[in-house]
Every structure is written in structure tokens, then in C-alpha cells.
Amino acid sequence: MLRLSRDQKLGAMLLVFAVLALIFWVPIDIDTGIVEKVRRRIAIGDALAPVFALCILGASALAMLLNRTTKQDQSINWRFLLTISISFGLVLSVMRYLGPVVSDLFNDESYRALRDTAPWKYIGFITGSTALITILSSLAERSFNVRRLWIALIISVVLALIYDLPFKTLLLPPNSDY
């Protein structure tokens, strides 16, 4: 049975992607062709550049598929990637929604009116940033301690003040979204 190396499998996958994109994605999702006629003159259409890119991608994927080098130093840590993705999903959600939720509990005004007012403008960012630093450093060290949480909180407060105090036109995340 044919055994493929990791790079050859990657080459095969990307070759299939490039071919499918050239056959289906490009014709369906681009309104002009490789060239088009504009006012009786031939001009380059929107499809040329992506087709050029996909040809490079496909050709290099084919070269990888045909290359029998089996050197493989590192592997993808899928568990790490999954944990990182879930952590970011949670942290960015907290950052986005915590400020408005807390301000709704204690205020009658909308969050939009309060988005550049202390302490409301800091709630989402500082909580999210503290959580992110704590989670990532705990993940790296595979352990958790409360001291790290305090360090993360101090770093987050300092970063918020560095960005917020000198630049009056800049808003901390997520305040520009409101």
C-alpha cells in the first residue's frame, strides 16, 4: 500500500483544494473572467490574480507530493490548538459582553453612552486580558496559582492605562464596537 509522508499528505490536500477552487470556487464567486471586454478593449478581469495564485499553490503542492523527503521534526499539537481556540472564544466573548451586561445592571444609560467613561470602559478589557494572560501562562506551565492571576491583573491594568490615558482618540476593546 502507498504510504505518504506528512508533507506528501499536505501536498495532496492542497493540490485537491487548488483544483477544486479553480473548478468551482473561482467561477462561482467571481463575476468577471480572466480577461473581459470593457468599452471594446480587452482588460484584465478579477479572476486572473486568484487563478495565478492557485496555480502557484497547486504547482507547489504537486512538487511536495512528488518530493519523497521524510524529514519531520515537529508535529501539530491539536489538543493545544483546540484549548487555545476555546480559550480565545471564551475570553473574547467576556471582553465583548461583560461591560454592557454590568453597566445594564447598575445604570439606566446605554453602554454606548458610557463606552468612554471609567470604570465601564475598562471592565471588558481588563477582565478579558487578565483571563487570557492567566489561562495562557497556566496552559504553558500546566499549573495554576493565584499569584499569577494577580500578576495578570496588574499587567492588564497597566496596559489599559498606557493605551487609554495618552491617546484620547483610541478606545479599548470592545468599546469601538458600540
Binding site: 492542497l14 486568484p50 495564485a53 492557485l54 502557484i56 497547486g58 504547482a59 507547489s60 511536495m64
Partner: peptide, 15 residues
């Protein structure tokens, strides 16, 4: 070959 793969991907995402 990996350099060109990286190039093709970068160009495609730019477009």
C-alpha cells in the same frame, strides 16, 4: 516547494 506554497497561499488570501 514549501516557499512557493507559502507564496501561493499569501497571494490567494490577498485576493
Amino acid at each position: 516547494d514549501k516557499g512557493f506554497l507559502s507564496l501561493g497561499l499569501g497571494l490567494f488570501i490577498a485576493y
